[in-house]
Each structure stands twice: as C-alpha cells, then as structure tokens.
Nucleic acid binder design. Structure first.
Lengths: 127, 127
DNA sequence: CTGCATCCATAACGATACTG
DNA sequence: CAGTATCGTTATGGATGCAG
C-alpha cells in the first residue's frame, strides 16, 4: 500500500490492508471467525460459542455475531423448536477471511518468544 | 490456539494470537511498522512519517512511536543538532513483527474484492 | 522541528437484568 | 436457550497550544 507521490511515501487509511485491520480491530471478531473455522461439525450453537470464547460477555458475543452476519461472513440458522435453538457457521466469504486470521494465529504460535520479548521490553520500560 | 477441554473447544484471550492482535488493534501501529519496514534508507524522520501516514494526528504519531519504542520494536535516534532532528528505524525484533503485517497487507491487496463484498453486504443489511 | 500536556467527544467494552 | 435493553466505565482518537 505504500505509494510514492512526489518522491514521498504515502500510506492511505482506506487501503485494503487497513480495511482488513478494521475488521480485526473489533476485539472478538477474529476469535469468533477462527473458532467457527475450526469448529467440529461446522455449526456452533450460541451457548457453545460463548462457553468456548472464555471471557466474552453475552452482549459482545451477540454484537459480534450480528455484525459478522451483516457483513456476510457467517450464516445464522434458526431451528423452529422449543426451547430455541440457533446455530452459526462460516459462509464461503467468511472462509476467505479465515485465511489471514489463520496465518496470524499461526505466526503467533510460532513466535511466542518474540511476543514475550516485546512484553518484557514493555515491562522494563514502564519503570 | 483452540484447545479441547472436556470435549469442548476453548479459546483463550491471552493466547499468542490474541496478544499479537492486541498490538495490531492500536490503530496506527501496524501502519507505522509497515511504513518503516518499507522506508527507503531504513530511517524515517518524525515529520516525514507524519506526512506519509495520511490522517494521523501529531498526538497519535508520538503516542504510537513511544509505545513501539517501549516494546522494543523501533529504535529512536536523536541527533545533537539545532533545530532538533530525530529518526526512527525498526529493530531486529520489530522486523520480526513486520512479517505478519506484511502478510496481512499482502492478503488485503490480493483480496480487495472480498473486502468489497463484505462492505456491500454490510451496506445492504444496514437498510 | 520535536515532543509533551490539556481538554474533549465518542466509541468500545462489560455487567446486569429482563423478555419470549 | 436465545436475544435485547440499559447503564456505567474505560479506552481511543483528535484538536490545540506550549516549550526546548
């Protein structure tokens, strides 16, 4: 995304990479997508998801699910039963977005030491 | 990072991938790192960076630079001249983190159509 | 030019309680 | 069980002005 304009580098806030980042900056969206992409059986029920994503609040879970659905990344399926049953799964578009997330997760797993170094630096600099 | 515990999938908020994401969720940090990793000559002056990162405010630039320096991702060099001259460059650790950012940027560039689809979906769902 | 300190608006997040 | 509504807190970002 860098571009040279009049001999200077330019980065644009609305560039594709930034747009991708924007999606990711929503705290739980990557985790939800990642969870669904690894979910045994593809379809996850609301409660299952919540228990799986340790620490997510009900509100944030629903907000995230709704947003991802609006963006066409996940599909919501309502069963006509009592008590209510709903599940979510990735759409093909959602699977596309699971790719970079998977990459990121992979990198994180392989570079835990770099993350530790960064944190150590931060701690040291904080005093 | 998914783990099976008692037959259920678990994701942890403090997993390496999440820690990476946390760094990225700071709006400008990826752009700064990415900019520096592509900077001709490696070293970028403060003002040059600001002009390059269209739309960043002075405050956010300094805040981001300071944070990245505290984390050991960039090095700050002060020249003993008047008027003041300072420049920043990636540390080896910073270069490590530039990798996943580059991947992400690459993905964004190659999948602009997916981003467009997502946005279109969102627009359609908003009415 | 670089860096820092204020002040302020708003968006993100989370706890909780309530409905069908 | 799924989903919504309300409220309060904190984090984030941006404008501006001042100092070395």
């Amino acid at each position: 995304m860098p571009a040279w304009v009049e001999g200077k580098l330019f980065f644009y806030a609305d560039s594709p990479p930034r747009r991708l980042m924007e999606l990711f900056s929503v705290k739980w969206s990557t985790m939800v997508l990642h969870a669904l992409s690894h979910w045994p059986g593809e379809r996850a029920r609301t409660g299952e998801l919540q228990r799986s994503l340790q620490g997510i609040s009900k509100k944030m879970l629903f907000q995230t699910l709704k947003e991802l659905e609006m963006r066409g990344l996940i599909a919501r399926h309502v069963y006509d039963v009592i008590p209510p049953k709903v599940d979510y799964r990735l759409t093909p578009l959602g699977r596309t977005f699971a790719e970079p997330i998977e990459q990121m997760y992979q990198w994180g797993l392989e570079n835990e030491s770099a993350l530790d170094k960064m944190e150590a630096c931060y701690q040291a600099a904080s005093r």
